[in-house]
């Protein structure tokens, strides 16, 4: 099994990559909203709910302590959409 240090070193770049992809997705959404300003909004309840779930999921990740249950919490959050 991995030590705490090995755990971080082994997956840091991959986690960085995944967070950057999420950041890019949210930036892409903002740009699309700006581009579509004035047109009929397509941010239906379903889309808004998905965005809310993503933000809630990020808050789960940002918590320093989570009793080793971040994945379970995240799956519970995503189960709502």
């Amino acid at each position: 099994m991995l030590t705490p240090r090995q755990t971080v070193e082994h997956s840091f770049l991959e986690a960085r990559h995944m967070l950057l992809e999420i950041a890019a997705l949210l930036d892409r959404h903002d740009a699309a909203v700006e581009r579509m300003a004035g047109a009929v909004a397509d941010s239906s309840g379903e889309v808004a709910a998905k965005l809310a779930v993503l933000r809630e999921g990020l808050a789960v990740l940002a918590a320093e302590r989570c009793d080793g249950a971040r994945t379970v919490k995240l799956l519970d959050v995503f189960a709502r959409v």
């Binding site: 770049l13 991959e14 990559h17 950057l20 890019a24 997705l25 930036d27 740009a31």
Partner: peptide
């Protein structure tokens, strides 16, 4: 694949 720009982010920059 991991350490630099991804295909999606590259297209984002082309669009911007």
């Amino acid at each position: 694949p991991v350490t630099q720009c991804s295909p999606k982010r590259a297209v984002d920059m082309l669009e911007r």
